[in-house]
Computed example of a mutant assay.
Amino acid sequence: MINDFEKILNRDLRRLFTEISAFEKEENLWKTTGEITNSAGNLTLHLIGNLNYYVGSKIGDTGYERDRPAEFSMQNVPRDQILMQIEETQDMVSSVLKNLDDSRLNEEFPEALFGHLMTLGFFLIHLSGHLMYHLGQINYLRRMLETDS
């Protein structure tokens, strides 16, 4: 199962890379429209921070220190830098999860979230869903902004 989680997370990180690359105008990474409050760039920084913190720091003990408010407030980070961070996150996810075995899935995750304790397996399912959710938002926002430009 750990191998499956690694494959799914990296599959969707590759999709994130492709989605960010698909923006025709780099400045659209930092725009919103209508009542949407988070740009594709900020959602991407959020996903990178989320995975580096929970998979990297909490599971893999990488020492990553998260600045969650910056994930939503930074602007105009160059696309090439974001793409490099996505690739680095893929490498980290692979490295951390390949060093685990399935027996760890039933262990308690080292941090209580959402008001309760959970297993590592449950939390990896959550992380995958979180990535897919925001990936869909980024895709939709790109299509809205690129059509309007």
Rank of each mutant, 00 (worst) to 15 (best):
T37Q: 15
L131W: 00
L120A: 08
M84S: 15
Q137A: 04
N3S: 14
L13Y: 05
H130R: 06
K31E: 12
S73Q: 11
E88A: 13
F114L: 08
D4L: 13
S95G: 08
L51E: 04
L51Q: 07
I138T: 06
E65M: 09
F109E: 03
P69E: 12
T62M: 01
L43Y: 00
I36S: 11
K98D: 07
D67I: 08
I86D: 01
F122Q: 13
I20G: 06
S39L: 08
S73T: 15
L13W: 04
P110W: 05
K7D: 10
S21I: 06
L105S: 07
T33E: 06
I82P: 02
I82V: 14
Y133L: 09
N10H: 05
L113Y: 07
K25E: 12
H130I: 06
E71Y: 05
L131S: 02
E71C: 10
M92T: 09
N50H: 10
M132T: 13
L117C: 05
L43W: 01
V77I: 15
M92P: 05
R15I: 11
R11K: 15
Y64D: 00
P78N: 12
L29F: 05
G115I: 02
E107F: 06
Y54A: 04
S95M: 10
L16T: 06
S21Q: 15
L105G: 03
N76K: 13
D102F: 04
E88W: 02
Y133A: 00
G115K: 00
G121Y: 09
R143G: 05
P69I: 09
S57D: 10
S39V: 12
P78D: 13
D148T: 05
L131D: 01
R11C: 09
